[in-house]
């Protein structure tokens, strides 16, 4: 009975950490977009490297928050009937941050040559991916506060993911119809797949979230 006096303090701490976690996801998505645009403009610059480092830091902070949330959930036996879902959600959402980081590292290490004719395609693809991830972050936060809002956010995630798939297909057609060397084509295709893969993963997380939200509402 007496532990309930500190229950609300623990609850507020946990709520704040979960919010912080999803804020990191949304923040990383903004930085990722800026980094890719920067790369398309001027290749690997000082600014690009800084943004890569920022995404790396956000990923590390999110990892630390995830571990903290896991510990708090299990140590204090909070939300016993939903904690498996919450952990599953946070772990899979954390993978989105890892994908952002690995995609930027690939740009930094492999330095793909993106010709001007493909720049707008890459920009458009990145925009769609970022919109899908932003909507996912909103959906995740809605899951905790207002599960009724999850389906509408998830519908937007799916919409942006489909759009990203379409843009990536068009971009790949454009790349393979161009006159550049095959090795470059294959290199650029890998980057299209890498960026598009983030939206695919965002959709997977949203699918999980839909089930968790249904469980909460029944």
């Amino acid at each position: 009975m007496f532990e309930n006096f500190s229950l609300f303090k623990r609850t507020s701490e946990l709520e704040s950490k979960i919010d912080q976690f999803f804020d990191k996801l949304a923040e990383a998505s903004v930085i990722y977009r800026l980094a890719v645009r920067g790369y398309l403009r001027e290749g690997v610059s000082e600014e690009f490297k800084e943004r890569l480092d920022t995404v790396g830091e956000l990923e590390t902070q999110a990892d630390s928050l995830r571990r903290d949330i896991e510990q708090k959930l299990y140590k204090n036996i909070l939300i016993p009937d939903s904690r498996g879902d919450v952990l599953g959600l946070i772990e899979t959402a954390d993978d989105v941050l890892t994908l952002f980081q690995s995609s930027l590292w690939a740009f930094y290490i492999e330095k793909p040559v993106i010709h001007d004719q493909f720049t707008s395609g890459y920009k458009h693809l990145t925009n769609m991916v970022i919109k899908a991830v932003d909507e996912l972050a909103l959906s995740c936060q809605a899951f905790f506060r207002n599960p009724h809002a999850v389906p509408s956010h998830n519908a937007k995630v799916t919409l942006y993911e489909k759009e990203a798939d379409k843009v990536s297909s068009d971009l790949k057609v454009q790349i393979f119809e161009s006159k550049i060397k095959l090795v470059e084509k294959l290199h650029l295709r890998d980057f299209v797949n890498g960026i598009d893969g983030i939206a695919d993963h965002a959709e997977d997380v949203a699918d999980r979230l839909s089930i968790y939200a249904i469980k909460r509402l029944t």
């Binding site: 609850t11 709520e15 909070l78 939300i79 899951f143 905790f144 506060r145 599960p147």
Partner: peptide
């Protein structure tokens, strides 16, 4: 009410 708060 948030999931965590409703648990409390």
């Amino acid at each position: 009410i948030s999931l965590i708060r409703s648990d409390a």
